[in-house]
Design a protein around this nucleic acid. Sequence first.
DNA 1: CGATTTCTTGACATGGATCAAGCAATGTGG
DNA 2: CCACATTGCTTGATCCATGTCAAGAAATCG
Lengths: 237, 237
Amino acid sequence: MINRFVQKLRGLAELSLDDAAELERVTSQPRRYAARQDLIREGDETGPMFIVLEGWACRYKILPNGARQIMAFLMPGDACDLHIKLLAEMDHGIQALTSALVARVSQGDMQALMQRHPNIAAAMYSAQLVDEGIMRAWIVSMGRRSSIERVAHLICELYLRARGIGLTYDDEFALPLSQLVLADALGMTAVHINRVLKELRLEGAMSLGRGSVVICDLAKLIQIAGFDENYLHRRLR
Amino acid sequence: MINRFVQKLRGLAELSLDDAAELERVTSQPRRYAARQDLIREGDETGPMFIVLEGWACRYKILPNGARQIMAFLMPGDACDLHIKLLAEMDHGIQALTSALVARVSQGDMQALMQRHPNIAAAMYSAQLVDEGIMRAWIVSMGRRSSIERVAHLICELYLRARGIGLTYDDEFALPLSQLVLADALGMTAVHINRVLKELRLEGAMSLGRGSVVICDLAKLIQIAGFDENYLHRRLR
DNA sequence: CGATTTCTTGACATGGATCAAGCAATGTGG
DNA sequence: CCACATTGCTTGATCCATGTCAAGAAATCG
């Protein structure tokens, strides 16, 4: 089993064999979560840092009226909450969307690791910056993009992220998310997502079905999305 | 002149007199920016870290169709882009919204400062976590809140942030943002913002006019917004 | 194999956008 | 300190993108 966390960090900084071995070590005792199981809930005390090795998870929040908003997708290789221990409790939940394998690293262990391995620290900070960039892009999408642009933009993002950790096969990749989940991430209804997906299929841009997406025409998808090629692509110093 | 940056960090961690003096020192040579002047533009090389001492600024992005989305407001005391040097170029711009006084601290100086003063580092990381929480809250607002809820939620957020740095007078605080700017932050049109503000005024929740807001009934505003009392309030460990 | 969940499509409703016009404030150069 | 320009605020009329409700089909689960 390839360790996607190591693979991702390798893409963000030069890691020595020793760095990589240490990362393998701290993630060697992952725990299995079932789909829909919470890793942590809103209101819980902040816990360890989570590192997703396999499967998908999301950050989410439930509003007083019962609506759910997903604020981020976590795919293999993604970690979260680097300094979270500084706060007392979670203001949102994290939930597995599929069966998932998740390593948990205590704040102390992670801090020690980053002190001993400056390259790991640099990679972690880069990952953090990329994640913030993704959040900003989501704000832009929700605020100023039409529904079809939003869907196209999210799929572009997920496709490039999947490619970065070697999870794509040509123009296809596994996307085990129901239309309801996509709707809750994009701030729309499942019904409307369905219509938009049909439109994108008819336009020949992409086709989503049965747990995977085929990118039929990436250039067209990027153009529909108004996707900024710099985003997620940005050269590191 | 009170240094709002020091004041804000004091609220996030115990700072010694020496810590505070150092913070004063690195921000002692601020630069004045005019309203609408860019501190840095999309595509520019990443530069120093910015610390707003006086006035307001925002992060923003212009889309291919010319629409603008504001992704964050920076008010006195706010800093940005702690590790930004790790990336090659900016994926968004930062612009002064009013005349503003902004200190600039190089990545190297900041790193040295944080190494010598662990309490400052802890405060900076806390500030970062709060900022991330704000971004998540914006995503939730844009995705799942109605326009009146969104406006109320933003005003709650800004009111509490202003209060945290001593910028409120009773139930009033200076909000030098035009309705167009609010619209670009909330993903709506200026026309609709105007109608919503009228509704909030008639409801007796708040009243915005001529550069300042009066919170007439905070409880009501919070209730309209579905504002999570934990948010921005969370106890630090 | 029955029970959920997910997908799909149609008919209809509506929140917020768009367009338009006038007014109020603020800024600027003479 | 005035005339004029610019920007921001306010309101009305109309439109449309997306939500809501409903119902059947397809897939998946237990």
